[in-house]
């Protein structure tokens, strides 16, 4: 009896953790920094954490699909830089709206190319995208000769800095992206295909899902969301710098997705968890820099959070008595 009861307790803890664990950590981090630093606990700062979390949160949607389908994309940081410099350099020729749209389209095409390499040439995703990480970054340098592109176009800048009814435009954009992502994942057959492919690609193939097509679309979506993030980030900075834009971005995005409860190796995941995790990472960075902790410590902290997040998922699954 005791045995069953203690097991039930474990399962309950694990299940509740799945729903509210990340929220709990977020509140904990906000509480700790708020008590330590008066500059942290201002409305202005909370809004800015919200605003900056959109960089990770938007790019994370594509990555969440990718990890759910059982793959990885570590080229996103370099892709963000490359499409940022390429798209913003089009502004003088095709105007702000055209440049923004072409940035997103180019990013989607790059994602599509990744997908083709991975599915048709059957090269493992993590290593294809590792190669692409360096290729995209090199192309960004070569295209600009390592000179940042300054952005003065009103439309482009509005996407990162504008406000509607006093709400920052990136936040609205993020909510739209999440609505789209949610509908795609939960209300469309395609979302179920992603989860099926991630859970068991062979079974999916046998039950008639075109696995290659699903994976290609997933990588295209990764590109699509990176394209949007690229516009938001570069608009926020007012320039697109080939060397600095998106440096370490893949790392933050993967951390957010994993911390959000999506299991490495594929299967189901959570967009809500990802959103909260993006806030956690941004709050952590924001809090540490307000307390003037060395930026090097911030890197160490994010790295530890990633390992911690993966280990935590494992422990949760062990508690539930499931195998991956």
């Amino acid at each position: 009896m005791v045995d069953i009861r203690s097991r039930n307790l474990k399962v309950k803890v694990a299940q509740q953790w799945e729903n509210f664990g990340m929220l709990f950590i977020l509140v904990l981090i906000l509480a700790i920094f708020s008590s330590l630093d008066p500059n942290f606990r201002t409305v202005y700062n909370f809004i800015s954490i919200f605003k900056y979390s959109t960089f990770i949160a938007i790019g994370g949607i594509g990555m969440a699909f990718c990890i759910m389908s059982g793959d990885f994309d570590i080229s996103v940081g370099s892709m963000l830089a490359f499409v940022g410099v390429l798209g913003s350099s089009f502004i003088p020729f095709i105007g702000g709206v055209g440049a923004v749209l072409s940035t997103i389209v180019i990013a989607s095409i790059l994602g599509f190319i990744n997908g083709i390499f991975i599915t048709k040439l059957r090269i493992p995703a993590f290593i294809t995208t590792l190669g692409m990480l360096y290729i995209f970054r090199a192309l960004a340098y070569l295209y600009t000769s390592n000179v940042p592109v300054y952005i003065e176009n009103k439309f482009w800048l509005y996407i990162g800095n504008g406000k509607i009814f006093n709400i920052n435009f990136p936040i609205i954009l993020m909510l739209i992206c999440y609505l789209g992502g949610y509908l795609l994942l939960r209300k469309s057959p395609f979302g179920r295909y992603i989860v099926a492919v991630g859970t068991n690609p062979d079974a999916s193939r046998l039950s008639g899902i075109n696995v290659d097509k699903v994976r290609i679309i997933v990588f295209t979506l990764v590109g699509f969301f990176v394209g949007i993030s690229s516009v938001v980030v570069s608009a926020n900075l007012g320039s697109a710098n080939p060397g600095q834009l998106g440096q370490g971005y893949e790392f933050q995005v993967i951390t957010a997705v994993v911390l959000g409860g999506t299991i490495l190796g594929g299967g189901n995941g959570s967009l809500g968890g990802l959103f909260v995790a993006a806030l956690i990472i941004t709050a952590l960075k924001n809090g540490l820099s307000l307390m003037q902790v060395d930026s090097y410590w911030q890197d160490v902290a994010t790295g530890l959070v990633l390992i911690f997040a993966v280990a935590l998922n494992r422990i949760r699954y062990t508690l539930l008595g499931q195998r991956e």
């Binding site: 990885f72 570590i74 993590f126 370490g248 790392f251 993967i254 994993v258 490495l264 190796g265 890197d299 160490v300 994010t302 790295g303 530890l304 990633l306 390992i307 993966v310 280990a311 494992r314």
Partner: peptide
Amino acid sequence: LNVNPLITTLAMMTI
């Protein structure tokens, strides 16, 4: 800890 080598060493790289 049974963490995927890619993720572990990616995190360790930053750390």
